[in-house]
């Protein structure tokens, strides 16, 4: 395995940025740390859990799929060589799940061309990043099991780097990296991982809630309760690493000219399932919240979950950002409480 002195990291990422579009944790003026195009001044390692998993790299908030000129549609498939530096293990699992969903059966090339050109570097978690982390419950952290090209372990003054692919190995072929005995590195990683697992609480309510949903034993009152509270902002879906639903719309700038684009959508919105006839199979907010949470905890696809627990990767962002406290954790606890 390789190691890298922490003081050399910025130089390494800077060198990568000359050849790749590098998205890295960046400190914003107001203090938030988000994934943004690498800049020396804003690059930061003190980023905890960034508010958004950068899923927009693969599924942009809005993406033009066709440019239309005189009613003729011309497809727009774009991607560039990207390095995603420092995503967390939960987000790695979110990316694996999303990629499985978007490429199986019918490959969505708008997504997969971007994915194919992305190099993923995971920063393993030494412990919970805040009080809503529950990746050990969902088998998606603190350390990624697969999918990454490189994984960094923060050992204080330096990083131990695990290689996950040939592409990752290439990245380490030049630069101030030093070799470390694999056995010693393995032991250090083991200690790192054990401590992280000890520190991240297991949320048993999630298992119990999944069991109750499976048995049809979750009380309808739970959904009605949350349905009354929900303000239909859709934020939980937008911060979720595994939510990929989108809407397709046309923007006609002049007759027969414009773009056909797709944009993030959320199953929490009333219009999401409404048909042209006016009929809506999910007619109220309770049924829509039920759908969102059943999709994660009950109706996940076996091949998409990538050896984790379910369609939730335990990042806790829905709990972090929902203005009215309807995150997966709150929902699981409410289901169990009944």
């Amino acid at each position: 395995m390789k190691t890298l002195a922490k003081k050399d990291l910025k130089g390494v990422v800077k060198a990568w940025a000359e050849k790749y579009h590098v998205l890295a944790p960046s400190r914003m003026a107001k203090g938030d740390c988000i994934f943004d195009t690498f800049q020396e001044e804003s690059f930061s390692l003190d980023y905890k859990k960034p508010p958004l998993f950068p899923k927009a790299v693969f599924l942009p908030h809005t993406e033009v799929v066709f440019e239309v000129k005189d009613n003729k549609l011309h497809e727009v498939i774009s991607a560039r060589n990207t390095i995603l530096f420092g995503i967390r293990s939960c987000d790695m699992m979110g990316l694996l799940q999303s990629t499985s969903f978007m490429t199986r059966d019918r490959d969505d090339i708008f997504y997969s061309t971007k994915k194919e050109r992305a190099t993923i570097i995971v920063m393993a978690c030494p412990g919970p990043q805040n009080e809503t982390c529950f990746c050990t419950t969902t088998f998606s952290g603190p350390v990624a099991k697969k999918g990454f090209d490189l994984m960094f372990f923060d050992m204080g003054n330096d990083f131990i780097i695990e290689t996950g692919s040939h592409r990752g190995k290439e990245l380490l072929s030049s630069g101030p990296f030093t070799d470390m005995d694999n056995k010693l590195a393995g032991e250090k990683i083991k200690t790192f991982k054990e401590k992280a697992i000890r520190d991240i609480p297991v949320v048993d309510e999630v298992y119990e809630a999944m069991r109750r949903l499976k048995d049809g034993a979750a009380d309808q009152k739970v959904w009605e309760h949350f349905g009354r509270k929900c303000i239909v902002c859709g934020g939980c879906a937008f911060v979720c690493p595994t939510c990929t639903c989108f809407n397709v719309y046309d923007q006609e700038s002049a007759p027969g000219n414009g773009v056909r684009a797709r944009a993030w959508d959320a199953c929490l919105y009333g219009g999401f399932t409404r048909e042209a006839s006016g009929h809506n199979p999910r007619p109220n907010q309770a049924s829509r919240l039920k759908r969102r949470h059943e999709h994660k905890l009950l109706y996940y696809n076996e091949s998409d979950i990538q050896d984790s627990l379910c369609g939730c990767v335990g990042c806790g962002r829905c709990s972090d950002y929902c203005p009215v406290h309807i995150g997966t954790l709150e929902v699981a606890r409410e289901i169990v409480k009944e």
């Binding site: 978007m102 639903c245 989108f246 809407n247 397709v248």
Partner: peptide
Amino acid sequence: ERMMKCGVGKCGHCA
């Protein structure tokens, strides 16, 4: 009948 927006199992509307 559902709101089958993309028709290819990706957009999620007809789940």
